[in-house]
Nucleic acid binder design. Structure first.
Lengths: 136, 136
DNA sequence: ATACTTATGAGATAAAGTATCATCATGGAG
DNA sequence: CTCCATGATGATACTTTATCTCATAAGTAT
């Protein structure tokens, strides 16, 4: 994950390595505050700054929550167009690209006055791991 | 618009009438701050409170912006499931319901591990009015 | 008209994120 | 390898958005 920052000309500093390291393992959505608490050795300002750099670099995605805060998820797809589904119980996020979605958008666009420029789709799921543990 | 509040047992107060009145005419997205500035006779706290009541009543919809603020739009569809398209230039919002969308979600759901519980779709458009005025 | 309850306003407070700036580390030039 | 210019960090102050508090005012049922 550090490499994407290096490629953009940013320096390889100790705090950035620590943050990138922690993020490598993340499969769930996270807030910057929570991230910051896991990293007491790094100042909050730097966590905010680094997350924003990684966002710019496409290494993570940002999601606006309805309470006005933001959650983030690590991305393997980067800046390429994609969508997400999020487990409403455990917060696990997966990225997906579906040709069907893009086809649908084009077909809906025909019924909408004006040019459709962009779209945003999110699915909220009860993931297999969660429904399994509920059954117990 | 006041009637939906009355139906929920809320009182018909002067500030609420003033706010509802102003909202009747709104066809674009708006922020509570902007609304509050248009209503100097009503305290900001009351604008916030009333907008949240109207939200609960289904008379308006709330949208999370990527900068952490919220924008709202008046709704004719209320709590019934629907989506929006928003003009990225003038902010005009329209609601839409498309059976094709719901069919698509069901078909995508088949490829996703877990139960799809909810979804959210937003389209960003360049509306006819805006593209017309650009041409000039 | 009265009494009870709910709503309002003003300001305090909370929470999330950004800006400032002195100090320190990085990485390239020599 | 060392030095230096530049970029990064940390601590804290600040900004913005929104909610909370509580004394006062207004609605509504009777």
């Amino acid at each position: 994950m550090m490499t994407v920052l290096e490629d953009l000309g940013y320096r390889t500093t100790f705090p950035r390595k620590v943050i990138a390291n922690l993020l490598e393992e993340k499969r769930d959505i996270f807030t910057i505050e929570a991230l910051s608490e896991e990293l007491p050795s790094v100042s909050r300002a730097t966590v905010y700054r680094t997350v924003n750099l990684l966002l710019e670099a496409g290494a993570i995605c940002k999601h606006a929550a309805m309470d006005g805060t933001h959650v983030y998820s690590v991305s393997r797809i980067g800046h390429h167009h994609h969508h997400h589904y999020v487990c409403v119980k455990c917060g696990a996020v997966e990225e997906f690209r579906a040709a069907a979605v893009e086809r649908l958008i084009r077909s809906i666009a025909a019924d909408i006055p004006g040019q459709v420029i962009d779209h945003r789709i999110e699915l909220y799921v009860d993931c297999n791991r969660c429904s399994a543990s509920e059954g117990a």
